Amino acid sequence: MNRSLSQTYTYLFLVPAGIIYFVFFLLPTIMSLFFSMTWWSLTDWKFIGFENFKTFFTESSLNIGFKNTIIYAVVTCSLKVVIGLLLGVFLCTKIKTVGFIRSMVFFPTLLSTIAVGMAFTVLMHPSQGFINLALKTIGITGPDWLGDTNIALLSVALVDVWKGVGIATVIFIAGIMSIPEEYYEALMIDGGNGFHKFWNIILPLSRPAMNSVIILAFIGGLRSFDLIWAMTKGGPGFSTDLIASIIYKQYQGGFYGLSTAGNVILFVVVSALAFPLYAFLNKKEVDL
């Protein structure tokens, strides 16, 4: 009787969480799937089947948006992993100002993405921006960072890395500091040096932290919108348009059903890429 009562209390404690999950996640997801197959406004709706999806895939900028989204996600994820790992290793050393440096590395993460985008738009101005003025003092003519279609997407990606690498660094620091000291002592006894310490101990044993950074950074890159919109609004042309910015432009145009279909497509794309990547990384971790 007591055991049955205990189980009842257990399920009752799950009810509030279940209600919150249903109201704020499950119900909006179901509604999005439904409204993606309708023409709708704030006061009326009409069921039109899969027409919104057909229309979305005929958008002239969609192919560019898909390509840009993949490039943006891969570039930002790769740089955050590499830079975050190197900073994590450096900030786990015994230096006097390690606490201050850790704070400085993490500080950009606390800033508003829109504010960062606006600030770097000014800094990257082709003629009056601080970056090109600094390059000019050493005899280098800086490019039009956000106006050149060949480098605009990369320029925004670098700003994204600057802002987000702090989280990656913190995760790597936690992973590295969890490695038992006995491994390092054994390596020193065997005559290992700093490179051996990194290659044979830190790199393989920080794999769980690396997997977390890869998943978070890759999904964040696929879903990125606010920084792109703050800096370029998808321009020049469609050179920095991502799937999310294309969806937002549909919202601006009043095509609510079409943009909802785009959100469903983005959800499917992120899931189709993230879940296999997660399974692959976990398999590699188990094999280790």
Rank of each mutant, 00 (worst) to 15 (best):
G84K: 02
G139M: 07
F57H: 04
N52I: 03
L26F: 14
I20P: 09
C77L: 11
T93G: 09
W45H: 10
L146P: 11
F56D: 00
T137A: 10
G117T: 10
V23M: 11
F107N: 02
L133F: 06
T109C: 09
D144A: 12
T29E: 00
V165F: 11
K80S: 06
F50T: 08
L154A: 10
V165D: 00
G166H: 07
L33A: 11
C92L: 09
T109G: 05
S60R: 08
F47P: 04
S60Y: 02
T38F: 10
V75E: 00
A73L: 15
C77K: 03
V122I: 15
V116I: 15
I64H: 02
L123G: 02
T69P: 02
T121S: 11
S112D: 09
V23G: 05
A134C: 14
I101H: 00
W39E: 06
V156F: 12
K80H: 05
L42S: 07
D44S: 12
P28W: 01
F120V: 12
S127G: 09
L87N: 07
L153C: 12
D144K: 12
K136F: 09
T55E: 09
F107I: 11
E59I: 14
A152Y: 06
F130E: 04
T76W: 11
C92Q: 09
L111D: 03
